[in-house]
Amino acid sequence: MMNKTVTEGAKRPEYSVQPVVRALAVLRYIAAGNRCRKISGAAKATGVNRTTLIRILATLEAERIIEALPDEGGYRLGTGLISLAAEALNDRGIVPSARPVLSKLVEKLKLSAHLGVREGHEIVYLARETPVSHLASTVREGTRLPAHATTIGRILLAELKRQELQALYADYPLEAYTAKTRTTLDALMDQLADDRARGVSWSMANFEPEIGSAAAPVYDHRGEAVAAINVTGYASIFTEGTEQAALIERTLKDAAQEISEALGYRGWAADQM
């Protein structure tokens, strides 16, 4: 009985360690491109009082989680955190399985390619490969973007049951990023139904002006969509009904299948029966 009580209690928010929560808030603030050059402004933005913020910054710097910028002033993420992130990403079997496939996608389509997973209302990029081009993706590994407005997010949301989607977005506003963003749950569900039926999600400047994208799901040995890959480039390249669009869709699906098979998925044969 005692063990059950402790286990259940450990899930409650009040068991979180506040100094750790504050340190993570500071890390996310810096990761978003803020340099903490003005302590008072950073304290207000993170909700951490000035004295505590100074101590957190000093500790994180000592542990090489952040590093000072002597010329510009302020801080950026340090090599200690980058090493930890790399170990975490590589420990997820999907990343080493996906990287060579993403490279082949880039070589064949001359578009940027990414691997991402969904965490709640957001997607997190785990890997990227880019062509030698001035339009190469600037999205970094670890970047978070809204699931409902992005192709990787949409194709993964399309795997959820209607009840799961309703619960996920019951009290969560669907922010508009362009005029094409679905901002009601009913409209989003209609879009996801189309994505699911097609097997890919498609975007012509749905999230960013002049940028097109398409994504396909990646399945594991249990048949669950654990990630998705996408390609991005000029929106005009993604004009539907063209030979280029057909090539993108076919190549993307083949790449997603290759990664899925590397993860032990064998559902393709069943789908073809």
Rank of each mutant, 00 (worst) to 15 (best):
K4T: 14
K4L: 11
Y15L: 13
V17P: 02
A31E: 03
R35G: 05
S40E: 11
S40H: 12
S40R: 12
G47R: 10
V48H: 03
N49Q: 09
T52R: 04
L57S: 05
A58W: 05
A62W: 02
R64H: 15
R64W: 03
I65A: 03
I66D: 01
L69S: 10
E72H: 09
G73L: 09
L77R: 00
I82V: 11
L84C: 07
A88K: 12
G93Q: 13
G93Y: 01
P100L: 04
K104V: 11
K108M: 10
K108A: 15
K110R: 14
A113M: 04
L115A: 10
R118H: 01
E122Y: 07
E122G: 00
V124L: 03
E129G: 07
P131W: 14
V132D: 15
V139E: 00
R140Y: 13
E141G: 11
G142Y: 02
L145Q: 09
A147T: 08
A147K: 04
H148L: 06
T150S: 01
I152G: 04
I152Q: 02
I155G: 01
L156D: 07
Q166H: 12
A167P: 02
A167T: 02
Y172R: 15
Y177K: 06
T178E: 14
T183V: 12
L185I: 15
L188N: 08
V200K: 10
V200I: 14
S201L: 12
S203Q: 04
M204W: 07
F207I: 11
E210R: 13
A214M: 15
P217A: 15
H221I: 04
E224M: 13
A228Y: 05
Y234T: 04
T239F: 10
A245L: 11
L247Y: 08
T251C: 08
K253S: 07
D254W: 00
S260C: 01
G264N: 07
R266H: 14
M273L: 15
M273P: 08
